[in-house]
Design a protein around this nucleic acid. Structure first.
Length: 139
DNA sequence: GCCAACGTTGGC
DNA sequence: GCCAACGTTGGC
């Protein structure tokens, strides 16, 4: 099992919308970046990820699960682009802000800090645990 | 709203 | 296959 981080502008697609989709989940479509796509191709069903709000909020707000592996992105006929489906698992009791992440030396090497523009990125097991802890996630 | 960083496109 | 131009993202 691997860990990931999915980034979205809340004005385009936010946590509340993801939650509203329930267990059926939704395509993580619209990605037009090879690095991000390649990461999605390596995801397997059951992988977990953080849901991050960029722009206005800049915080990790919840945990999601990959429920379908990479398949063609239905928002384009360009067959280069693929996406996975994800569902909301649970919100973090306390959102973990970018400021907190940046000020924690243990998280200094996160891609979120190093390459803020990558919209789908891997998270190490260590980083996963630290952010869950900061967010007050119990289980 | 600005700007830096970065990725993609297209001309050569 | 290189590289300049351009577009987009996201933090500030």
């Amino acid at each position: 099992m691997a860990f990931w981080l999915f980034k979205s502008e809340p004005s385009t697609w936010g946590w509340d919308q993801q939650v509203a989709k329930g267990d059926a989940g939704e395509e993580w479509d619209g990605v037009r970046n090879y690095q991000a796509r390649n990461f999605m191709r390596t995801m397997t069903k059951g992988d977990l990820g953080f849901f991050y709000h960029s722009q206005t909020e800049k915080a990790v707000v919840g945990i999601i699960e990959v429920i379908a592996e990479a398949h063609p992105d239905s928002t384009t006929t360009d067959d280069r682009w693929e996406c996975v489906d994800i569902r909301a698992v649970r919100p973090l009791p306390r959102p973990v802000t970018l400021d907190e992440i940046k000020s924690d030396p243990r998280l200094a090497d996160m891609i979120l800090v190093r390459n803020s523009r990558l919209s789908v990125q891997p998270v190490t097991p260590t980083e996963w645990e630290i952010i869950r802890e900061l967010g007050g996630d119990a289980s």
